[in-house]
Amino acid sequence: MPESVFGQEGESLFRYDRINALVAVVIFSFAILLFTKWAKEGKPLFLRKIPGLEAIEEAVGRATEMGRPVLFIPGIAELDEIDTIAGISILGRVAQITAQYETPLYVPVRYPLVLAAGQEVVEQAYIKAGKPELYDEDIVRYVAGEQFSFTATVNGYMMRVRPATNIYMGAFFAESLLLAETGNAAGSIQIAGTARPEQLPFFIAACDYTLMGEELYAASAYLSHEPIMMGGLKGQDFMKILIIILIIIGIVLVLFDSAETYLSWFEEN
């Protein structure tokens, strides 16, 4: 591999080998701030529909009609994972809908920190929905710290209680299919979202709707319908277009065998 044009890390305070990442961060931040500003000013921003998110309210409505609970799992990772934070953000929106419809909600978690954050978010959602009296601390429950103990507990719940709607949003690993197939067998409508590409096929096979990759992170902004949040999504789209252009330039340069310097700009050192 050719050596990066930015050179190797030396004794200096600044890591010159990461200038490429810094440039990307600056452009990305600028794009997000710019689109957020435009959104604040009221410029219309088009966002494509995400069927999985559109289906959430309908799925909670189904649970209400059937008189059965909604099961929400914010992944099985710790709170320091961005996937879990995304899951917790979506939980807030879902809890607001279940509070409005007075539908029981059950949120099993694997880590105590997620428990604390989940309880806070659900409580705020019930207050916001004007139904604080319906909030119960045990809506969000710590069930087990081990991956498969957690899975066994949740699967047991699904088969005994048969929730009408199962929502999986966050980081999932080997248990993804165990959960989703059990939910399918229990006859629940299922909506999943994860950024782990290796777990996506399992969710796609077993769930009714699946949010793929970036859609998980976009969900809280999408569900909020707040222009300021949607500005961030448009900034993301701008970066994607930029990356596509850079990939096309790279392909052309590789075809003409003159991509050595260009490729070194994107190397991780």
């Binding site: 961060v25 961005i82 934070i85 993301q236």
Partner: peptide
């Protein structure tokens, strides 16, 4: 896409 989404959310 996921990396961009995670970065945007972090920001």
């Amino acid at each position: 896409g996921a990396a961009l989404g995670a970065a945007a959310m972090s920001l």
